[in-house]
């Protein structure tokens, strides 16, 4: 159920250049039942930034009533968020959207998780859930460079992990799709989150017969009411059909959305 709660900052640290890891505590954490869902944050009482910020969830610990987010401090909202300290409060609305269906992968199968930049975080909770279930996971993580990379060891603890950087300063030089081709990686199902260009390339790869992708867009309300974050479905004869990324997604079946 969607709730609005003032949650308490348990911890916050900069884990890569401008990349922050923040853990929040509150009853709302118990409502997050699926990886890939997101929260919509109001950073302060101020009139600027006025709107909430959609942030993905990297780790859910319902028993501790906590969840962890990893985000990039870029604009006014996320920069203000990055200045929050332990004990501060954050106005959280969530959990929102539809996440990655863990049930689509069966025990004994292999899933390949492909993430790019700030699209990597939700794949971490997904990988934890898949491994818990007995699904073997392969991770392919793409970053700009070594300074922007994070969580590579945490992913490596869960399964084979390949890292690609644009400048080759960490892992192998190239894009995630180059790595998948080079190593001939195959799986029963893929899950991906990252920039749209990457998702487009991932869909064309067929590293697995089927998969799910998570999209990003500027959002207003985050609950499906404002029509700010719409996209076209792939099969649409009229041109007027639409999907809302915040409430129909952000996770969609590969091929469902016209990228």
């Amino acid at each position: 159920m969607i709730q609005k709660e003032l949650m308490t900052v348990v911890s916050q640290s900069e884990i890569a250049v401008n990349i922050f890891e923040m853990t929040l505590k509150g009853a709302l954490a118990r409502q997050i039942d699926e990886p890939g869902k997101f929260v919509h944050l109001k950073v302060g009482e101020e009139m600027m930034p006025l709107l909430r910020r959609p942030i993905s969830i990297a780790k859910i610990e319902p028993e501790k009533q906590e969840f962890t987010m990893i985000y990039r401090a870029e604009g006014a909202g996320t920069s203000a968020l990055s200045r929050k300290r332990t004990g501060d409060l954050v106005d959280v609305l969530g959990p929102l959207g539809h996440g990655f269906p863990v049930e689509e992968a069966a025990a004994g199968q292999t899933a390949i998780l492909i993430g790019g930049g700030i699209g990597v975080p939700p794949l971490y909770e997904l990988s934890r859930r898949l491994n818990e279930k007995g699904v073997k996971t392969i991770h392919v993580l793409g970053f700009q460079n070594k300074q922007a990379a994070f969580y590579t060891e945490q992913f490596a603890a869960l399964g084979d992990t390949y890292v690609a950087t644009v400048d080759g300063s960490l892992g192998e030089q190239g894009f995630v799709t180059d790595i998948i081709n080079k190593h001939g990686l195959k799986a029963d199902i893929f899950y991906s989150c990252g920039p749209t260009v990457m998702l487009k390339a991932v869909e064309r790869l067929h590293a697995a017969p089927r998969g799910y992708i998570s999209l990003e867009e500027r959002m207003g309300c985050g609950i499906g009411a404002c029509f700010a974050c719409v996209c076209h479905p792939a099969a649409d004869e009229t041109g007027t059909a639409y999907l809302k990324i915040c409430s129909d997604g952000p996770v969609f079946k590969a091929g469902e959305v016209a990228l």
Partner: peptide
């Protein structure tokens, strides 16, 4: 009268104390 998809994204932008929107009357008709 007819369904409308509305404008391309980005459709919203934040401003001090407000927001700009250009949804373009998206509705199912």
């Amino acid at each position: 009268e007819e369904p409308r998809y509305g404008n391309a994204t980005p459709r919203v932008a934040e401003t001090p104390g407000g927001m700009l929107n250009a949804i373009g009357l998206q509705n199912p008709g």
